[in-house]
């Protein structure tokens, strides 16, 4: 199985590579369209700032490539948010795979939403072997609202999508690569798709 982690200069790709290594997979890090197109699974990570990340995606043509991919694609954190239509973070236009608008957390809560929170209403083979209520590690200031695409929910000053799915595209707001054993289980479930 060929796993490619999209390398677009943003985010903590190394952690994802290491998590895959712990699971026994050697992944390839690439921004090359030929390499990405030849993958069986693509992971689209992301940590950082949305507008900067989109700039990088545009500069490398990945903004055109990613929405057209046919194999299972997993967007993580900012990666998931960038797969949406747009985000309130610097009013950035996203890849529009999911027709969803990313919102900023507002309210009397600490922001970023940082730490281990429960996920529930799990509705996908991505969560096979994971009980509703298990905790995953989140770090984000913007969120994807719940919709028909939600396959996991989380609550922080209101409910939001902890994971989304449409066709071959999956996204999770939490960091499976940093969510201890249950996070690694999510990654290994994704690799089985």
């Amino acid at each position: 199985m060929k796993i490619v982690v999209v390398n677009y200069g943003a985010g903590n790709v190394f952690s994802v590579m290491m998590a895959l290594k712990r699971l026994g997979y050697e992944a390839e890090l690439s921004r090359n369209s030929v390499v990405i197109n030849s993958a069986d699974k693509v992971i689209f990570p992301g940590v950082g700032q949305a507008s900067e990340a989109m700039k990088q995606l545009k500069a490398t043509g990945l903004d055109q490539l990613i929405p057209q991919l046919k194999m299972p694609v997993l967007g993580i954190c900012l990666g998931m948010q960038l797969m949406c239509q747009d985000t309130e973070e610097e009013d950035t236009v996203g890849l529009n795979i999911f027709q969803l608008s990313v919102k900023k957390f507002v309210g009397d809560y600490k922001i970023p939403h940082m730490g281990w929170n429960n996920i529930y209403d799990l509705k996908s083979p991505l969560f096979e072997g994971i009980e509703s209520g298990e905790r995953m590690y989140f770090v984000h200031s913007y969120y994807v609202p719940n919709s028909e695409h939600s396959i996991a929910k989380c609550d922080y000053s209101g409910e939001f999508a902890a994971a989304i799915h449409k066709d071959n595209f999956y996204g999770c707001q939490f960091h499976p690569e940093k969510s201890a054993d249950f996070g690694e289980k999510v990654l290994s479930n994704f690799l089985k798709m």
């Binding site: 940590v47 950082g48 700032q49 940082m114 200031s141």
Partner: peptide
């Protein structure tokens, strides 16, 4: 914060 995001 600008380069890497404030969360880190």
């Amino acid at each position: 914060a600008l380069c890497f995001g404030r969360q880190c």
